[in-house]
């Protein structure tokens, strides 16, 4: 008989902890994550919707959006988080308030914004993908709100990157008739003179946005 008496677990998964389950961020998410929208005084530093300071490298842009519910009404209490590469296609993983560019930011509509939110950032660069063909420039978004029990992941591409979009190995996995739901439209300039891109994210309906599980 072996001196070792190892017992394998009957179900390997049973020895791992289950992930903490999600719960909705609720209507008052701003108290915690977007203090100005709640009417709270801001602390010395807040994570906000400005990813790129003026001195950041790359083309400054404004990414503006609205999230619509199944009745085509704006989701006024949405909180949007962005995660994007810098202009050279690198994620800045070390977040710091004095970075000229952070890959992470948060946006939430103010009470009089009718559900519209915006990020001030730079156009991200292309990014590598398995197989050697780059992904087109994109911004990853996470959506949180009352009535959303577990946050939603989506991506935003740019309509003036048609060639890169056509080659993007990630975008090409999205069924062709739904790709348009991920593409922001160039819509003039914002008051600061930066190119503005508009995205409409639909939670339901025939043009429902593609949401990802990964």
């Amino acid at each position: 008989m072996s001196p070792l008496n190892l017992k394998q677990p009957r179900d390997p998964a049973s020895v791992y902890l289950p992930e903490t389950p999600s719960q909705t961020a609720g209507p008052y998410v701003h108290i915690g994550l977007a203090l100005d929208v709640a009417g709270l005084p801001e602390r010395e530093h807040e994570i906000d919707n400005v990813l790129a300071e003026p001195e950041a490298e790359g083309q400054r842009i404004e990414l503006a959006g609205v999230v619509l519910d199944g009745a085509e009404q704006p989701v006024a209490d949405i909180l949007v988080e962005a995660w994007q590469a810098d202009a050279n296609g690198n994620y800045v993983t070390e977040f710091a308030f004095n970075n000229v560019f952070n890959s992470f930011g948060r946006a939430a509509p103010a009470a009089d914004d009718a559900g519209h939110w915006r990020f001030r950032t730079v156009k991200p660069g292309r990014l590598p993908y398995a197989g050697g063909i780059d992904m087109a420039p994109h911004v990853n978004l996470m959506l949180f709100a009352r009535g959303i029990n577990i946050h939603l992941h989506t991506r935003v591409y740019f309509d003036d990157e048609a060639e890169a979009n056509a080659d993007c190995p990630f975008l090409n996995r999205v069924p062709p008739h739904r790709r348009n739901t991920l593409i922001a439209r160039r819509a003039g300039d914002n008051p600061a003179g930066d190119p503005r891109y508009d995205i409409v994210i639909r939670l339901q309906g025939p043009e429902e946005t593609v949401f990802f599980d990964f």
Partner: peptide, 25 residues
């Protein structure tokens, strides 16, 4: 949730890229 839960299936990403694997520290 009735008007806010997506009705299409989530699209599964079998080969996550650096975009899905990375995050802020």
């Amino acid at each position: 949730t009735v008007l806010r839960a997506p009705q299409q299936a989530l699209m599964s990403i079998q080969t996550p890229s650096v975009s899905e694997r990375s995050g802020p520290d």
